[in-house]
Design a protein around this nucleic acid. Sequence first.
DNA 1: CTTGACAATAACAAATCAGTTATATAACAT
DNA 2: ATGTTATATAACTGATTTGTTATTGTCAAG
Lengths: 122, 122
Amino acid sequence: MKRLRPPSLDHAFAALADPTRRAILSRLTRGEATVMQLAQPFSMTQPAISRHLKVLEHAGLIVRRAEGTKRHCRLAQHGIAAVDQWLSTLRAALETNYNRLDQVLAAMPAEPPKHIERNKQR
Amino acid sequence: MKRLRPPSLDHAFAALADPTRRAILSRLTRGEATVMQLAQPFSMTQPAISRHLKVLEHAGLIVRRAEGTKRHCRLAQHGIAAVDQWLSTLRAALETNYNRLDQVLAAMPAEPPKHIERNKQR
DNA sequence: CTTGACAATAACAAATCAGTTATATAACAT
DNA sequence: ATGTTATATAACTGATTTGTTATTGTCAAG
């Protein structure tokens, strides 16, 4: 029951937040791999990896292909596309804001704050 | 300066995994806003928003500017750049794998599985 | 049909998270 | 000084996450 519902950004970003899962994805950029092959580099039990893969699949970041008792995993575009698309909005805004920064800086000396906050940093 | 250590991908992706925080970022694409301005659209208390902002700042996704008792927040490029850079690897791999897919599909009928997995979907 | 390899699931513990209310701090206004 | 506004912090709670071990299901080989 693959159901293939729209992988929420919640799930996609949450999946990417874990270093083990990102390492698994990095490994998969070098091609398909079975669960055992993916588990081998990690000092972690197989069930742990299985659950990481479940999270990745659920996030639309990987897909699995069954072959005998083995499950071959590979990258999926679905989740990454969703993430990418959402980020593009931020990217665009950052560029725009960066362009606007000149104006902001130009406008600031005209209205100096009455108290400069005590500098606690460093 | 802000100490500006490399915002870990863990923190950046984890910050992006929350819908409230993404909504805050979306709001910030329309320009700077104070904490109260950011809190207003949400049915959530101010301390909750404050902590979300802390997470976003820690992830390098926003920066804050003090002005009186107000804190003006705006998008930061730091965290987004980190995320973007990491994702570019995946993007590249996906394209490569997609190109390879033809070969994979061409190679598959040559070695038909002895048992086709029972189709449970739909 | 039994065995062994591959993978998924269940049950559990420790850690983390996202929200709450209550309180503290800091600047501004009176 | 006092009150008000804007924000941060503390302490707590319930839900979620990440790992573990033990078990189960499936297939392929003999």
